[in-house]
């Protein structure tokens, strides 16, 4: 059980890296796209979400470095 948990934590760290918020945001954006009922309108969700996530991620990191 302990090894399974360690493997799961290792896999999550490998995928999410040092920015888990972006990984969660990507999952949420994919979920939101799936929820939009019209496929011809659903494509807009991903570009907007990714732009927001990238800007937020870069801004957070820049602010962190400003403080140190």
């Amino acid at each position: 059980m302990k090894r399974l948990r360690e493997a799961a934590v290792g896999a999550w760290e490998f995928v999410a890296g040092d920015d888990w918020l972006t990984a969660v945001g990507v999952l949420a954006a994919l979920g939101l796209t799936a929820l939009v009922s019209d496929p011809d309108e659903a494509w807009i969700v991903m570009p907007l979400a990714v732009a927001g996530l990238l800007a937020l991620s870069v801004w957070r990191e820049a602010r962190k470095r400003d403080r140190t």
């Binding site: 939009v36 496929p39 969700v45």
Partner: peptide, 17 residues
Amino acid sequence: TSFGIFWGAEGAGASWP
């Protein structure tokens, strides 16, 4: 990122213009 946006949206059911 570009291919991720494209394939992710398609996989979630969207159609690209």
